[in-house]
Simulated assay, not measured.
Amino acid sequence: MTEFFVTYKSQLIHTLIVLGTVVILYFATNILHKWLRKKEENIFSNAPIRPFNIIKRILNILWLVLGLIALGLIYVDSDKSGVLINSFKLASYLGVVAIITIIAATICNMWFKYKIQEKIALQYDPTSFKFLRYVAVFTICFVGFLFGLLAFPSLKGVAQTALGGAGIIAIIAGVSSQEALSNLVGGVFIISFKPFRIGDIVKITDTMVGTVTDITLRHTIIRNFENKMIVIPNAIMNKEKLINYNLGELKCCERIEIGISYDSDIDLAKKIMREECENHPLIYDNRTDMDRKDNKPIVRTALTQLNDSSMTIRAWAWARNYSDSFALRCDVLESVKKRFDKEGIEIPFPYRTIVMKKEKTTEK
């Protein structure tokens, strides 16, 4: 046993030094992580936790990998140590690039979040900052990935070409037919021309109506009135014909239609619909000064259609915004139905006439 320790004394000492260094670095990383988390909570209460946890895991894995490589250098022959040295450099390079990329992306993301909160507090439109946040974070991660490729000789040429301006343009041109790029370009067009912004109420189809909550590199997120999140690719948002209830004037005209029977009094039905609309607290007076001087009613009613078994009466009721117009429509339909029942105005429903044909039987 004594001869073994004497023979391998230097190797054992180096092994203990490597193991001790790895253990010290492991505990130092954990202590530093806890300290940075406390500082972050004191300065930025809403800062993300995940990047710090990822950095801690990368460092702990890096210390373990470097420690194993260092142990291998102790016990392998000198002619094979070159491979381990190259592996040591590769692992160190990739670890440093990954950590720098994560730190840069996190700082960029936190800065944009701070600017977005500042815009919201000042009641400015934060849409551009929200979109640029995704662009900036994606760019940092993409550049970090390319620098990581530089460590591999077979991929070094691709990374160097992509890091050049012409290389990036060539890559974009190469994937220009793909859907991912069309969504990205669609997002840029949405931010540039602003057909809608975050917080606007938009209607794409009868089943897709809601408030725009976010615009990312790939898609737009709409929260409908059932509190469900609708994710629509930006390329589709650019192609669809949508209604933006917050673009321009907010006031909204709600067309309320009810069918009455041919036996009902048209004038009475129009009067009831006008009164119920005008008495609603959410009604908006959209008359001009000339209309008020001529004593024109706030709500216009008219007979708009003669159907097979009913006549359609329409009321044009204005509200301050889309939400008020929807509530106005629901309340007026209910109140008009009750008034029609009280005044004897019939709302027709389908009739079916059944003719029973009696067959004659002949006796033989």
Results as ranks from 00 to 15, higher is better:
3 E>G: 06
4 F>T: 03
10 S>T: 14
16 L>P: 00
18 V>Q: 00
21 T>M: 01
22 V>A: 03
26 Y>M: 01
38 K>S: 03
38 K>Y: 01
40 E>M: 13
40 E>C: 14
57 R>K: 10
63 W>I: 00
67 G>V: 01
71 L>H: 04
74 I>A: 10
94 L>T: 07
96 V>Y: 04
97 V>Q: 04
97 V>Y: 05
98 A>E: 10
108 C>W: 00
114 Y>V: 01
114 Y>Q: 05
118 E>F: 03
136 A>C: 14
144 G>Q: 09
158 V>D: 10
162 A>M: 07
167 G>D: 15
168 I>Y: 09
169 I>T: 06
172 I>Y: 12
173 A>V: 07
197 R>I: 03
197 R>G: 01
199 G>D: 08
201 I>Q: 02
205 T>L: 04
211 T>M: 07
214 D>S: 05
215 I>F: 04
220 T>L: 10
221 I>D: 08
223 R>G: 06
228 K>A: 05
234 N>T: 14
245 Y>G: 02
248 G>F: 09
261 S>D: 14
265 D>Q: 03
269 A>Y: 11
270 K>D: 08
275 E>V: 04
284 Y>S: 04
285 D>G: 05
286 N>H: 13
288 T>S: 13
290 M>E: 14
292 R>S: 02
293 K>W: 05
298 I>H: 05
303 L>N: 07
309 S>M: 15
311 M>H: 04
312 T>R: 06
318 W>M: 08
319 A>E: 03
321 N>G: 06
330 C>A: 08
330 C>D: 10
331 D>C: 07
333 L>W: 08
339 R>S: 14
341 D>K: 15
342 K>M: 07
345 I>H: 01
347 I>F: 08
347 I>N: 05
348 P>N: 10
353 T>M: 10
360 K>D: 02
360 K>M: 02
